[in-house]
Design a protein around this nucleic acid. Structure first.
Length: 291
DNA sequence: CGCCAGGTTAGAG
DNA sequence: CTCTAACATGGC
């Protein structure tokens, strides 16, 4: 199938992001092609994505799929690469901005490569809380290999993110051998249980306005402002979502402004007033500046 | 060894 | 409401 891409879109910039960790377990990038297993009605289907003639060219295995599976895959990929967002007005704003001007020129077309599944995005955010990114990827790799379904293609194994029902059954202690802290283990199981017991779903949060969605997410233990905003940005594409507490964002702002110390959260909020309505994309390009 | 890392919670003031 | 300690462990 072929998926058209918007004007301000750079597949190679998105690939750079997808390549950032050698320990990434949920997709592979080789020679301009991304391969990933997508769970369609709980069955893993392998998709191969590459850019061709200003569109995404998608192949899938097995080849024979139903129309609804096809539709699901198309929507998943469009959400994954955030193809629906029109960046024109963000770029108009950012081009005139001292901090973002160079970044949006240098990384033009870079989009928020997200996680269309809320369970995945919340769990990944919890894994990344308070630890360095490399170790977070190690934890994710162990977690997915241990509990995720998979399929094999071309001599490679492709994993799906674990199902909430699988994780909901665990006692948090069972995650300690993977080197989860007790707190992370508790949070991860708690989030899975919220999905499994129907207290939380991608669809129910998607229908809510931004502030209500944030409030709902924060009711769950382990989800604070940082994690809620991360998910609202990566899963639901709220353009105003951004984690003001984020250490990486603080470092980026310090570097770009030549500050001696990292900005306080209040300074970050003040700075971000000028990006109102585009906080998520401003954050993305600040993160990108970290290299 | 010390400090920091894509924080959150519970509890104190 | 704001502030702080505890949590826990790898990477540099």
């Amino acid at each position: 199938m072929t998926i058209p891409v918007p004007r301000e879109f750079s597949f190679s910039e998105c690939l750079t992001f997808l390549l950032r960790s050698p320990r990434e377990i949920l997709h592979r990038v080789e020679g301009g092609v991304v391969r990933k297993a997508i769970g369609v009605e709980r069955e893993p289907i392998l998709v191969e994505i590459q850019e061709r003639n200003n569109a995404l060219d998608v192949h899938h295995y097995p080849g024979g799929i139903t129309e609804s599976q096809r539709k699901f895959i198309g929507q998943y990929i469009a959400q994954w690469f955030d193809l629906e967002t029109d960046l024109k007005s963000f770029y108009a704003l950012a081009r005139k901005d001292a901090l973002l001007g160079g970044l949006v020129k240098q990384y033009h077309g870079y989009r928020i490569v997200g996680q269309p599944d809320l369970h995945e995005s919340l769990t990944w955010a919890i894994l990344g809380q308070q630890i360095n990114l490399g170790f977070a990827y190690t934890l994710k790799q162990r977690f997915v290999e241990q509990y995720g379904h998979s399929l094999e293609h071309g001599g490679q194994r492709y994993f799906l993110f674990p199902e909430p029902s699988t994780i909901a059954r665990l006692a948090p202690e069972q995650l300690l051998p993977l080197q989860f802290s007790r707190q992370k283990a508790r949070y991860v199981v708690e989030v899975a249980r919220a999905f499994h017991e129907g207290r939380l779903s991608t669809e129910s949060i998607r229908q809510l306005p931004f502030e209500d969605a944030k409030t709902e997410l924060r009711k769950i233990k382990g989800i604070g402002n940082w994690t809620a905003n991360y998910a609202l940005m990566k899963t639901f594409r709220f353009p105003q979502a951004f984690p003001a507490e984020d250490a990486g964002l603080h470092n980026a702002i310090r570097n770009l402004k030549g500050m001696r110390a990292k900005p306080t959260i209040e300074q970050v909020r003040t700075l971000f007033k000028k990006y109102k309505g585009w906080e998520a994309y401003a954050t993305l390009y600040f993160w990108r500046s970290l290299g």
